[in-house]
Simulated assay, not measured.
Amino acid sequence: MYEVDFAEFPSASATASGQFFERAFGWRVTPYGPDYTDVRAAGLTFGFQSDAAERPSAPLITIRTDDLPAAREAVVAAGGEVTKEPFSFPGGRRFHFREPGGSELAVWCPAE
């Protein structure tokens, strides 16, 4: 199973981004410290990263899977380049990759 269910955005202030979407649309906000906030809306979660060392340079679309090692193998076999090896984060594990056209995406698996 592979489905897009998350997009991460760079933010000058993760707190301000979360507060905006909560006030504007009533979406549920979960802060994970001062530099990261999740905003949940209609089956999709938006993450806002303000830590300069971790902030993506562009929106990062994230694909959910139940088998992270198999997804990594499939990405490499299809010609993708792994740009960040699998790592843990609150909620699960993920890796980043660049597809042959140059866009960076990520694949994640929830914590068991």
Rank of each mutant, 00 (worst) to 15 (best):
Q49W: 01
P90S: 13
A16D: 12
V39Y: 10
F48K: 10
R28G: 07
T83L: 01
A24F: 02
E8F: 00
G80T: 12
L68F: 10
Y36F: 15
E81M: 10
F9R: 02
G101T: 15
P110N: 07
P90G: 13
P69W: 03
I61N: 04
G91F: 00
R55K: 15
F6V: 03
T45E: 08
T30F: 04
F95P: 09
F48W: 08
Y36K: 09
E99L: 05
P56F: 12
T15C: 00
S17P: 04
F20C: 03
E22A: 12
S88D: 13
F89T: 00
R40N: 06
P59K: 13
P10E: 05
V76C: 11
D66Q: 14
A16C: 01
L68S: 07
R28M: 04
A41T: 05
P34A: 14
R94D: 05
F97I: 12
E73Y: 00
A71E: 01
R98L: 11
E81S: 15
G102C: 06
R94W: 02
A77K: 15
D38F: 08
T62R: 15
P31V: 04
A111Q: 14
G18W: 07
R94Y: 03
T30V: 14
R28E: 15
A42Q: 09
P86K: 05
R72E: 15
A7E: 04
I63R: 00
P86F: 11
P31N: 11
S57I: 03
A12F: 00
P56E: 10
R23F: 01
R93S: 13
E81K: 08
G18M: 02
A12R: 13
A77L: 08
A12K: 09
A42C: 09
G43Y: 15
Q19D: 12
D67R: 11
V39T: 07
M1N: 13
V4F: 15
V4W: 15
V107C: 11
P34H: 09
I63E: 00
S17T: 08
S13T: 04
V75Q: 04
R98V: 11
P86R: 02
L105P: 06
T65S: 09
P90L: 00
E112H: 12
P59D: 07
T62K: 14
P69Q: 02
A58L: 11
E8R: 09
T30L: 13
R28H: 06
E22M: 01
E81L: 10
A14H: 03
A77S: 09
T37Q: 11
V82P: 07
L60V: 08
G43D: 13
G91N: 03
P31H: 03
P56H: 10
F9H: 03
F9E: 09
D5E: 14
Q49M: 14
G47L: 12
G79F: 07
F21E: 08
E104K: 03
A24S: 09
A77W: 08
T62M: 15
S11F: 00
Y36G: 05
F89L: 10
V39R: 02
A12S: 12
A70V: 01
A53P: 01
R28K: 13
G101K: 05
G101A: 13
A14L: 09
P59G: 02
H96A: 12
F9Q: 05
S88F: 00
